[in-house]
Structure formats: C-alpha cells, structure tokens
Simulated scan of single mutants.
Amino acid sequence: MYRDLYDDKHKIRVFSPHERAKGEGYTKKPSTGEYEGGILCADCDNTLLGSKYEDYARKAIYGGRLPENENPVCENFKNQHGVHFTTCQNISYLKFKIFLLSILWRSSISSRPFFSDIKLGPHEEIIRKMIYDGNPGEVDDYPIFFMTYVNDKSMPKDLIVHPRQIRTKSGHRANVFIIGGMVYMFHVNSKNHKLPEHVLTETIKPNNSMNIIQIPKGTGWDVILGYYGLK
C-alpha cells in the first residue's frame, strides 16, 4: 500500500493535517516507511499474514492473477441522490477483511508514534484471535466504511495521513486511515451499540461484495481535515 507513496528518490511524503491547516506542506520519511520489526514471529508475519492475506490484497487492489471467484470486478455508479460510488463483486470477504483488520490490529500493538492514536483496548485481543483463526466474523463485526478521492485530479495520491480515532456523529468510535487516496474507517464498538445502516450496507459483506463511496470532487481536503477537527 506504500507503492504509490514513494517519490523518485524512494522517499515517502507524510502529510500532517495540522501543518496543512497552517498552509505548510509535507514531511519526508525514510524509504522503509513506518516499519517496526519484531512484533510478530516469522510464521505469523510471513506465512499467516504475508502469503495468505497480504498477497491476496496486493493482487486484488493493484492487479495480479487470482482465481476467477476471488478476482474483483468493479463498476462505477451514481445513485438517485447524485452520490458516485464503486461497487466491487468477487472480492474475498475472508481474505480482504482479515487483511484490513491486520492493519488495524498491528497499528494498535505498534510502539511507533505514527500509530499512537490507535488503541483498541479489549477489542485488540478479539481481533487478534479473529486474524489468527482466519475468522472474519459477521458483517457487523468491525465493519470498514470505504471512501476514495482517487478520481479527483486536484488531490494528491502520494500521501499517507496520521491515523486517528474519532467519534462519529452517531456516537460510534471509528479509526480512520488515509492511504494513497483511499479512506478506511474501521468501526470498533460493542454489539449493543447498533451501527448506522449505511456502514453495514457499504462495507465488505459475506457475499463477497463491497461499495466504495467517491468523495465529491473539490471536497477532498474538507473531508480529510474534518476528521482532525480542522477547517
């Protein structure tokens, strides 16, 4: 997921919303990105996550040979309210959801300052077990809401934003990651806290489909800065 973030010198540009609000630009990061070694054993890092889930996600997102029933087919639509969105079929609910949950979980256990806002509390152990057991759970178990601004040519694609935890308007807790033009909102709440219907409608579902909401052109910065309480 870092692939499109490197410049011609193989350095990553990291974006700070607070610096953007002050009119400043980007900061440079080393070529390895936010790498932290030693938090997983070799078997979990390479075999469980690497070959099973990361390899699938890489091919599903960026292209590669996959079985026909796991090879995503995506189309763009516009609903009756004028909202543009992308629908993807044939995307593995099990593999893609666990891949995404592994990003959330590893951010929670990381000691890197970049991920300091992502703390899952008691959900950390639940998600760890889901990943280890290969269990993506039900559709309302830690659903992810997807948005993108990749179709807005005025927005930079080569940035990764400091992930943070927010409270949504409905009072739910969401962990927001912005990577290479994609916005991933992980909802982490108890079963007793009913999630908004649009989250469950758009998230990746057991029927191997998902929707990605396209952020209206010209509003990308408003969306990004809004997650940080900035104008």
Score class of each variant (00 low, 15 high):
7 D>H: 02
8 D>S: 12
8 D>C: 05
8 D>Q: 11
12 I>G: 02
12 I>C: 01
13 R>V: 00
16 S>M: 11
16 S>Y: 05
20 R>C: 00
23 G>E: 01
29 K>I: 01
30 P>G: 05
31 S>F: 04
33 G>V: 03
34 E>N: 12
35 Y>L: 07
36 E>W: 02
39 I>Q: 01
42 A>S: 12
42 A>G: 10
45 D>R: 05
48 L>C: 06
50 G>D: 02
52 K>C: 05
54 E>L: 00
59 K>L: 00
61 I>L: 12
62 Y>H: 14
62 Y>P: 06
63 G>L: 10
64 G>S: 11
65 R>D: 13
68 E>W: 02
70 E>Q: 12
72 P>E: 10
72 P>M: 15
76 N>W: 00
79 N>F: 11
81 H>S: 13
84 H>A: 15
88 C>D: 12
89 Q>D: 15
90 N>L: 15
94 L>Y: 05
96 F>Y: 14
98 I>M: 06
98 I>Q: 02
105 W>K: 09
109 I>D: 06
116 S>M: 13
117 D>M: 13
123 H>S: 13
127 I>D: 03
128 R>W: 10
133 D>H: 13
133 D>Y: 08
133 D>W: 08
136 P>E: 02
142 Y>D: 03
142 Y>C: 08
144 I>P: 01
146 F>L: 14
147 M>F: 09
153 K>D: 01
156 P>G: 04
159 L>R: 07
161 V>P: 02
161 V>M: 07
166 I>L: 09
168 T>I: 11
168 T>Q: 08
172 H>M: 10
174 A>I: 05
176 V>H: 05
177 F>L: 08
178 I>W: 07
178 I>N: 07
181 G>F: 11
185 M>H: 04
188 V>M: 06
195 L>C: 09
196 P>W: 10
198 H>K: 10
203 T>D: 03
206 P>M: 12
208 N>Y: 07
209 S>V: 13
216 P>S: 11
218 G>P: 03
221 W>Y: 08
225 L>S: 04
